[in-house]
Amino acid sequence: MVDKSGLARQFIEAIPHARALAMELTDIGEGTAVIRMPYDRRLVGDPKSGVIHGGAVSAVMDTCCGAAVMSHPSAPGGTATIDLRIDYMRAASPGQAIVTTATCYHITRNVAFVRATAVDDDTENPVATASGAFTVEQRF
């Protein structure tokens, strides 16, 4: 398990777009992952309020869901998003990091099912939630 979390961490850090958004994998368990994305002015979707664009939230949600699949004990060799739905509950507060937590709650030989939540400093009120299906690639 130690090896796998090390691998998953390296995998996330090797993703160019995850690096571009300064994502940080802060925790990984058996089928769960936590990724933090710091606030960045370049990611603003509404210049008047300084609120982060929903697209950047999608990117961190997608990465976090993929990491949760990769960390599942049945150890897929790889994964890709089949479908991802995001519900936006509220605007993220400007200046605050976004922290996403994803859980791979069911996995078959071919498909992994994942749920995720994104929060800012106000951890009681989610900014967004996501649910999706991911492919399970066989190991070579």
């Binding site: 160019p16 777009h17 950047a56 990117a59 990465t63």
Partner: peptide, 21 residues
Amino acid sequence: DLIGNPFLPALHGGVTAAFLE
């Protein structure tokens, strides 16, 4: 910087979602 899978390589799913949004 838009790459999500450097081995294929392929666009990041989040980039695709953001582009569509």
